[in-house]
């Protein structure tokens, strides 16, 4: 029933058009690059200063100075370029990134995103470029499990953790559903097989609406 991480990534990748400039957040979203349908040319941005980022290198062949924002070794595709952090953030804040895919601790029904700090004092907060991406990217997609590991809902009427940005999320992809953020709140567009609307609602703190994509 629940989608695997890779299946979630594949569902997100379907919605990334050919020719897009895309920034993938640290964690789950980085999987999306591995499952983009063949024939689509996507230009990946990393906020430490790469455009045209390619896949991970063969083990043992990486360059310790060619890494993504999550400090993992990467490669550069033909046509790629390097630049300093300020230019990387100009791309984000200036509205040049078409799509960002971010992880989330919580999403509010008005599109608020909380993905950098929790109420767990043992977990140091880490914001990276998420605030700038959330505000600056033209389209903000969230990829996250539907509930926390201990079963608490992540889709809420309002976030309780500190916000990354307010009213920015366009669409949420979980292991159970694809959900749009609309002026009416969360609207479920797709659900995995084997789950009912009532079961999905039971795992969601915010009220869910159901409707086909306009």
């Amino acid at each position: 029933m629940n989608l695997s991480k890779r299946q979630m990534a594949a569902r997100v990748a379907q919605d990334i058009p050919d020719g897009s400039y895309v920034n993938l957040g640290i964690g789950l979203p980085t999987l999306v690059a591995d499952v983009v349908p063949p024939g689509r040319e996507i230009v990946y941005h990393s906020e430490n200063g790469i455009l045209g980022m390619g896949p991970a290198p063969e083990p043992g062949t990486g360059d310790p100075e060619l890494i993504n924002a999550g400090k993992q070794p990467v490669t550069l595709l033909p046509g790629g370029a390097y630049f300093h952090h300020t230019d990387a953030f100009v791309m984000m804040r200036g509205g040049h990134i078409d799509i960002t895919v971010l992880g989330a601790f919580q999403v509010g029904e008005g599109g608020d995103l909380a993905n950098w700090a929790t109420d767990d004092a043992t977990m140091p907060p880490a914001v990276g470029g998420a605030m700038d991406l959330a505000v600056g990217a033209r389209r903000v997609l969230v990829m996250t499990t539907h509930t926390t590991k201990d079963g608490r809902p992540k889709l809420l009427p309002a976030c309780t953790f500190p916000l990354t940005a307010a009213a920015v999320v366009d669409r949420v992809y979980t292991d159970l559903a694809v959900i749009d953020v609309t002026p009416d709140g969360f609207v479920v567009r797709e659900m995995v097989d084997g789950i009912t609307r009532e079961e999905l609602q039971a795992r969601t703190a915010a009220t869910l609406h159901f409707g086909v994509e306009p």
């Binding site: 400039y21 455009l51 033909p78 046509g79 370029a81 390097y82 791309m91 040049h96």
Partner: peptide, 15 residues
């Protein structure tokens, strides 16, 4: 594509 030095690109194509 690929013939410009990635260290020397002044304006990345995103702009």
């Amino acid at each position: 594509l690929g013939s410009l030095d990635p260290e020397a690109v002044v304006t990345p194509g995103i702009f």
